[in-house]
């Protein structure tokens, strides 16, 4: 070691300087890689979300991003967070429905769900899991099992979605739970119900709503 073998101890200033220098070079490298990859990363994320919106709102060709404000929905492509919904429009420009984000606890961790909602009919049009860490082989069937996902195509949301034992679905607001993953199935239903409770008063039907008219001009 340096102590005792005649080598002079470097002063604190030199130590601090070398750390600062290394930090500076490292910072430059990180900024460079961040700038280089940012466009691809943003494009990937936007594409993923677009795909999800198209999945939960069948027949949609155009998507617009709205933000919920005290005065109603406002189009805002830069909006983020809880108060955002996506409006999906068919080729004629008519509103098909809204794609709504909702999240809640599943069996393992938070599940983030995107669901399509038709405000006039008060029905769910489709469901897509954005994020989940449910048990592989069981709970992950909430997005891997096409049969379960198909439950949410044209599903009555009122009074509320109810998960029932597989094969016993009888009412328009019931879904077949996954065998062996009842908790995850019920969690998805509950998350959509909660999303509906939060949003139902705020989403105007296609015609005659000022929020959308304004945005359309």
């Amino acid at each position: 070691m340096s102590i005792g073998n005649g080598v002079k101890e470097p002063g604190s200033a030199r130590l601090a300087l070398s750390l600062a220098f290394a930090g500076f070079i490292s910072g430059l490298a990180i900024i460079a890689i961040y700038e280089a990859t940012l466009p691809t990363i943003t494009a990937n994320k936007a594409e993923e979300l677009r795909q999800a919106v198209f999945r939960v709102l069948p027949g949609v060709t155009r998507i617009r991003k709205f933000e919920s404000t005290p005065e109603g929905l406002k189009e805002n492509p830069e909006a983020r967070g809880e108060e955002v919904v996506y409006g999906g429009y068919d080729p004629q420009g008519a509103l098909v429905g809204y794609a709504i984000n909702s999240a809640g606890p599943g069996f393992q961790d938070t599940i983030r769900v995107l669901y399509g909602y038709a405000p006039a009919e008060r029905r769910v049009l489709g469901m897509w899991i954005l994020e989940s860490r449910e048990t592989p082989g069981l709970g992950d069937k909430i997005y891997k099992d096409a049969e379960f996902v198909a439950n949410f195509e044209d599903l009555a949301i009122e009074p509320q979605i109810v998960a029932v034992k597989k094969g016993t679905r009888s009412a328009p607001n019931e879904i077949d739970a996954i065998t062996g993953a009842t908790i995850s199935s019920k969690a998805v239903a509950r998350i959509i119900n909660e999303g509906h409770q939060r949003w139902k008063g705020r989403l105007p039907a296609p015609d005659g709503q000022p929020g959308i008219e304004e945005a359309e001009q």
Partner: peptide, 27 residues
């Protein structure tokens, strides 16, 4: 590399490479 701060410097070097790997995989 001064001996007294070598661990910190190693970590700075490693962390830089990790960040590069992280963003590259993400993209």
């Amino acid at each position: 590399i001064p001996k007294q701060v070598r661990i910190s410097l190693y970590i700075i070097i490693i962390a830089t490479f990790v960040t590069i790997a992280d963003y590259t995989i993400l993209a």
